[in-house]
């Protein structure tokens, strides 16, 4: 175990910050640290907070963190904002809403830019949460914006996913249907001090009723769940509750926290917690295995071998599958 890893485990905040950069940049040191820290992970409750821009995610994360702190839990926050696809730069502004957390050594906030590739973001976010987990943060809040594939990937990472809505988004409610209900464990109508809360709540509840329960059985967080004997008999399926909050005042927060705790208890009692962990680890292993195999194989190929094969593909002299066979069998050189 390196000095950096050791320092992170012993609570050194600068070491933690530096290690987060190493894993985000996927450096050899970062990779080695993740290996070394792995045995220390698996303790934290990972909570995803996602929803359309400006719905109040950061304000809500601020409130949630305050409440978890009052309960004596150490809280880490990973706040993801998009990178500009043109310049690769980013303005990460979520901290603006989290100033109440300043000065508390039990809180650590890290902003991350999405940096282009979706797979990369999911991997970097997962790595950051593992570092926080190993460093002893009991609750890890992950804020992401939107409802795209990256949110689904990050929801797969979280134990509990909160989807944040705000009243008056009107047609956006339609957009939720497209997939975000799929990942929501809790639906939150924030800005409940604005008009239109009732209409939003009605719309969400209608959609939930339509979605339940078949959706839950077959697909959750993008993972398939077979209920044939795996879930204990009589275990109730989780139906996402709808909570109302005002993040500016903290109204509705006790109820939201209680719902989060209920969800965690449900995950544990139903066996879903263990199932999710297993599915996540297996997916991570799978991905790494494939990446590593491919990288090793390509590294030992003679120079130009792949290029000439790809050229043959272009000229339609070689079919893709036949090309793969050739490559693996080492013939046709």
């Amino acid at each position: 175990m390196t000095f950096l890893t050791q320092s992170v485990l012993s609570g050194d905040r600068l070491a933690l910050a530096r290690l987060l950069s190493q894993v985000e940049n996927d450096t050899p040191a970062g990779r080695a640290a993740l290996d070394a820290l792995f045995a220390h992970t698996g303790q934290a409750h990972l909570i995803g907070v996602t929803g359309a821009p400006g719905t109040g995610k950061s304000s809500l994360v601020n409130q949630l963190a305050l409440h978890f702190r009052r309960a004596g839990k150490r809280v880490a926050i990973v706040a993801v904002d998009p990178s500009s696809p043109f310049t690769g730069g980013a303005v990460l502004g979520d901290r603006v809403r989290m100033r109440d957390l300043a000065g508390d050594p039990g809180v650590f906030i890290r902003s991350m830019a999405s940096r282009g590739s979706l797979g990369g973001l999911a991997a970097a976010t997962a790595a950051a949460t593992q570092v926080f987990d190993a460093a002893g943060f009991e609750v890890i809040l992950i804020e992401t914006v939107g409802a795209g594939q990256s949110e689904v990937d990050i929801a797969r990472l979280a134990h509990t996913t909160l989807v944040i809505e705000a009243p008056g988004l009107g047609d956006d409610i339609q957009a939720i249907k497209a997939g975000i209900l799929e990942i929501a464990d809790l639906l939150v109508i924030n800005k409940a001090d604005h008009p239109g809360v009732e209409a939003t709540e009605r719309a969400l509840k209608t959609m939930l009723e339509l979605a339940h329960p078949v959706r839950k059985v077959f697909l959750h967080h993008g993972q398939k769940f077979e209920l044939n004997g795996e879930a204990a008999p009589g275990t109730a399926l989780w139906i996402p509750p709808v909570c109302r909050t005002v993040a500016l005042s903290g109204q509705g927060l006790p109820e939201l926290l209680e719902a989060i705790e209920r969800h965690a208890a449900h995950l544990r009692s139903s066996g879903d917690w263990a199932r999710r962990e297993r599915a996540r680890l297996e997916a991570e292993f799978d991905l790494l295995f494939q990446e590593t195999l491919v990288a090793r194989f390509l590294a030992q190929l003679p120079a130009g071998r792949l290029d000439s094969l790809l050229a043959a593909l272009q000229e339609r002299k070689l079919a893709p599958r036949a090309g793969v066979e050739q490559l693996l069998n080492g013939d046709g050189t």
Partner: peptide
């Protein structure tokens, strides 16, 4: 700075040196 490809963490108004 963003347009120059940097990652900018923006913290808002009235920050103390400690923050």
């Amino acid at each position: 700075l963003r347009d120059a490809g940097m990652e900018v963490i923006y913290t808002g108004l009235r920050q103390t040196p400690e923050m």
